[in-house]
């Protein structure tokens, strides 16, 4: 049973992902944050490492703190303690530059194009 954290400022996207996650059975719990600061605060507040998310989805285009900045901070603060947590960049950008930049981060394992579907989610968790 996987735990998931989704970070995206797009309400409608969050709404659809929320709907998809509700429908699939293999998710034990999931949290949606609409910006990077809140997400970092949430991760800091996790004390029991079994509660730490197994999979984190991060959007690239967000105001105030974009996905890349979140990754930089995440790698410094959490990555060494939680090496098994997978991070997937979630983006509707078709730019190859963004993809390359994302995959250059040590912590990023996947680059997923929106929209997120049940089959994509199943593939990521398998």
């Amino acid at each position: 049973m996987a735990k998931i954290l989704l970070i995206d400022d797009d309400e409608i996207n969050n709404f659809t992902v929320d709907a998809i996650l509700k429908r699939v059975g293999f998710i034990s719990n999931y949290v949606i944050k609409d910006n990077g600061w809140d997400a970092l605060d949430y991760l800091k507040a996790v004390h029991d490492s079994t509660d730490f998310p197994d999979l984190i989805f991060v959007d690239i285009n967000m105001p105030e703190m974009d996905g890349f900045e979140f990754l930089e901070r995440y790698e410094v603060m959490f990555w060494s303690q939680h090496p098994h947590t997978k991070i997937s960049m979630l983006s509707s950008s078709i730019s190859e530059r963004d993809r390359e930049r994302a995959l250059n981060f040590m912590s990023v394992s996947e680059y997923v194009y929106k929209p997120l579907t049940e089959s994509k989610l199943a593939g990521l968790l398998s």
Binding site: N13, S92, S93, K114, P115
Partner: peptide
């Protein structure tokens, strides 16, 4: 391109 794509993808989903 981003702003055009994301609502369409949301609509599809």
């Amino acid at each position: 391109s981003h702003d055009l794509r994301s609502p369409v993808q949301n609509m599809k989903a």
